[in-house]
Design a protein around this nucleic acid. Structure first.
Lengths: 203, 203
DNA sequence: GTCTATAACCGGATAGAC
DNA sequence: GTCTATCCGGTTATAGAC
């Protein structure tokens, strides 16, 4: 009964994603994943031999989402301005849909940096893309920042608000989730304007 | 022999900080902390009743470092420009000295957001400070960004490069730690210029 | 205060019935 | 494929000698 196999497998993956994203590899419990999936603990081992393998499956899948997006943005942007806009829009829209991703990847990054870097290296996007976009701009219209600093700036501006959600919500907005949501809604546009203001010299 | 007590306690705290910062609460092992401190595992329990209590001690202490710094910067800056400079310099200099702090706090933030927010709320720094600095500037010289967005921007720009160290080093610089260190050295100045370029309108 | 030995517990993994 | 019962290793925590 292949149909049923896929259903259970899907349920497990979904549950595992949920729990791993919330607790990280170390904090997650197989029992909790089983409960979340509404199945028995030993079934987890039947489908995936070990916790490690299950985690790897979830991680690879999750990470691929992000990488695919970046690759797409890198290859499709042809001016510095469109690059900034596409990159920020792409990134924030993924994170708004799946805010847990940020924590998940960062968490795994501190637990097992090697694995994350390996996954990135498997991809084939062009790290020099931004530098070449910058060099093809008129030197009088943009400030000469180091392209790598700028990439890190943009990543930081996009990712951090999701990682720091409890602080922003709890401290800046006194726990008001509505205000946090508005803040996030406005975030995309803010980052684009902020970065463009920093990079482009006004005439 | 009070002197000795303090010494051992200090050794434990230092070892615990080291291990907790590296592995997080879930990943850390009491045995590893004992080894790092050069003492026996059961002594840990003698000084601190449980792993939880030991972690709490380390966390509170570590977090206090950061909070004290921010409080100090917030109260001592009297213009927008000096605020940006002090804030960025203060933050990055702490992180350069103790790069693990970023991971540690972010990790705990996803594991136990409540605890982190409580600690922040215990402090008494003025979240409206930046807004008041902005409003006291000449409206024609600065762009009217939302002050909370700007605070988050600055925090993001300062903290992220440390959290993402493996990615920046491994991917951007092909694993070359020297290049990463140069990148970090230049980071403080870059952030200050980047933020000022974004916020201040050139005449 | 510090150590060795061990208890108590927990969680991942397996065996085996259905 | 799914379940119940159980094993086994590792980890926190405690007892007790020195």
């Amino acid at each position: 009964m292949v149909k049923k196999i896929e259903n259970t497998e899907e349920k497990i993956i979904a549950a595992a994603r949920e729990v791993f994203l919330r607790k990280g590899m170390d904090g997650a419990r197989m029992q909790e994943i089983a409960d979340e999936a509404g199945i028995n603990k030993s079934l987890l081992h039947y489908y995936f031999r070990s916790k490690d393998k299950l985690f790897d499956r979830v991680f690879t899948e999750t990470f691929k989402n992000v990488i695919d997006l970046i690759t797409e943005v890198f290859s499709s942007s042809i001016t510095l301005e469109s690059f900034i806009e596409n990159f920020v829009r792409g990134y924030t829209s993924v994170l708004i849909k799946k805010p847990y991703i940020a924590n998940f990847v960062l968490h795994e990054l501190s637990r097992n940096p090697q694995r994350v870097v390996e996954h990135i290296n498997l991809t084939n996007f062009d790290k020099l893309k931004l530098a070449s976009l910058i060099s093809s701009e008129d030197k009088n219209t943009i400030r000469q920042f180091n392209p790598i600093q700028i990439i890190v700036d943009i990543l930081a501006l996009c990712i951090f608000p999701f990682v720091a959600k409890p602080i922003i919500k709890g401290f800046m907005f006194d726990g008001d989730i509505e205000e946090y949501n508005i803040f996030i809604d406005q975030r995309t546009q803010h980052i684009i304007e902020f970065v463009k203001s920093a990079v482009f010299i006004q005439k």
